[in-house]
Design a protein around this nucleic acid. Structure first.
Length: 489
RNA sequence: GGCGCAUUCGUCUAGCGGCCUAGGACGCGUCCCUCUCAAGGACGAGAUCACCGGUUCGAAUCCGGUAUGCGCUACCA
């Protein structure tokens, strides 16, 4: 029996939950669920300076929204806690002490200024920048002198000067690094907090993480981690470096590419099922055809072997298409429930709140197959909620029509509305269609004029469905109002 | 500059030596449906599989080199 699958998502609370990070979380979650393992969330809050208030909550919100539940971590706890690195400092200090006493690490008293100058000099001379190991072999006395002068040291790893470090990446195969290209990186900062490298391997070890799945940007630091595992005498986990997500210009996805926070997508009216499906397909695929998959199908079929090695550009057009598809898949009532908050937020303040649930239920079927994102619903249906329409009168006059023929058409429409016994879609269409003929207009012209009178726009849901929702009285009022406008023009 | 990873239609991808005159999806175009817009349906344009060599009877698939892109190169993660 092999070790149980335990994977972790380890965000640093330095900002919003980026879709790239969330995709990493998703893949970890999928891997855990597929194998019946555990998905752990660990907050890597070791950078005190860059810490952002509220970031942890935002990240957890993003996970919850996508339904990525965690077995251990913030809120839920677990046997391997605490799950905030800032609460685990003693473990890192203990590891550091061990490394120093074993001769695998040492105190470094170099000032930030010296390091900066050193790097500047190295770059100038076309040397690879890296720590020059000035403090690597300090004597006891030299250390004492620096301490006495009040210098707080950092602790650096004593990287082997020669040899190679290699590891198997589950996605990329064997990766080899020359130790000579790795400098003596910092393990413990002078503020007493560990760097990512130290905290990461200590926690992954003590939390018994079986697979480390993270973005490709970490591939280059993996040999350091392997070296650390060796120095600590720990068995390293398996590594899998995921392809990155890029913006349309092929650079790392960032704010200037538009929305990057998962929270923003929620606010724009993308459905969580869309994001789940779409993000699953960014760097992973099942076969040459299958694209629309439920969460349980993705869990069932997910595998590391089918993860791509190439970075993927975030294709917003495809996201929009997929969201439209998921919107159409919603039951009418489900759609109403999801739409409600967006209508509430997006509709003109003049519209009476709370919105009439009953009325919204009548309206939503008109736009369910026309919306790609929930935020456009308010604009699509706004004309159904207001009393006064606002449009230019000449919109009423269709192609090949004159103001006079338009007035005639509207008057005929008004009369027909009056006499229609049954106010239903079929009946209305049966009554109005012949009327176009009688007026010498094409149905497109006649209905177009009516459409503008009824909705205030040239593009709308089907005319008669719209009219039925509005009701006879309001339709008459609107035609009347159109007539008034046209005559005044 | 050094090190590492990658390279199939504009984009997401299928392909793991013969099934490929390279398949699907988004987007785009044309047409059908049609009261507008969508949705739906049909068709189409779009990839000398980065390039150059090699291995092989046979390569998008294996190997080497080159180019390009991306990542790392912090007391950030």
């Amino acid at each position: 029996m092999t070790n149980p699958v335990r994977v972790r998502f380890a965000p640093s609370p330095t900002g919003y939950p980026h879709v790239g990070n969330i995709r990493t979380a998703l893949f970890n979650w999928l891997f855990a669920r597929h194998h019946g393992g555990s998905f752990i969330v660990r907050i890597e809050d070791t950078d005190v300076a860059r810490k952002v208030e509220g970031a942890v909550e935002a990240i957890l919100d993003g996970l919850r929204w996508l339904g990525l539940d965690w077995d251990e971590g913030p809120v839920v706890g677990g046997d391997y806690g605490p799950y905030f690195q800032s609460q685990r400092l003693d473990r890192y200090h203990e590891a550091t002490r061990r490394l120093i006493s074993q001769g695998n690490a040492y105190n470094c008293y170099c000032s930030p200024q010296r390091l900066e100058e050193m790097r500047a000099e190295q770059t100038k001379n076309k040397q690879p920048p890296g720590y020059d190991r000035q403090c690597r072999n300090l004597s006891r006395e030299e250390c004492a002198r620096a301490e006495a002068a009040g210098v707080v040291p950092v602790v650096r790893f004593k990287t082997p000067l020669a040899g190679q470090t290699r590891f198997q990446d589950l996605i990329r195969g064997e990766v080899v690094f020359e130790n000579s290209t790795i400098d003596d990186f910092v393990l413990l900062k002078s503020d007493g907090y560990p760097t990512y490298h130290l905290a990461n391997i200590v926690d992954d070890h003590f939390m018994e993480i079986s697979h480390v799945m993270r973005a490709e940007e970490w591939l280059s630091s993996t040999p350091r981690h392997v070296l650390l595992y060796q120095a600590m005498g720990f068995d390293p986990p398996q590594f899998a470096h995921l392809p990155m997500i890029l913006g349309p210009d092929r650079s790392k996805l960032s704010k200037r590419h538009g929305a990057v926070s998962i929270i923003e997508y929620r606010e724009q009216g993308y459905l969580p099922e869309t994001m789940f499906n779409f993000l699953s397909l960014l760097g992973w695929s099942l076969d040459d055809k299958t694209e629309i998959m439920s969460r349980s199908e993705v869990v069932r079929d997910f595998s590391l072997e089918r993860i791509s090695r190439t970075a993927a550009i975030f294709n917003k057009d495809k996201l929009d298409w997929m969201n439209g598809l998921y919107i159409r898949k919603l039951s009418p009532e489900e759609f109403v429930q999801r739409a409600l908050p967006f209508l509430d937020k997006g509709l003109s303040p003049e519209v009476k709140r709370p919105l009439s649930l009953d009325y919204v239920r009548q309206i939503m079927p008109l736009v369910q197959e026309r919306a790609k994102i929930l935020t456009e619903l308010a604009d699509l249906t706004g004309f159904l909620f207001v009393d006064q329409l606002d449009y230019k009168p000449d919109l009423l006059v269709g192609k090949g029509m004159t103001p006079e023929s338009t007035i005639k058409a509207l008057e005929a429409g008004r009369a027909k509305l009056q006499e229609s016994a049954v106010f239903e879609i079929e009946a209305l269409e049966m009554a109005f269609r012949p009327l176009a003929d009688a007026l010498g207009l094409k149905t497109g012209q006649f209905f177009g004029t009516l459409r503008v009178a009824i909705t205030g726009r040239t593009v709308s849901p089907p005319l008669f469905q719209t009219m039925v929702v509005l009701g006879r009285e309001r339709c008459q009022q609107r035609i009347e109002a159109a007539l008034v406008r046209l005559r005044a023009a």
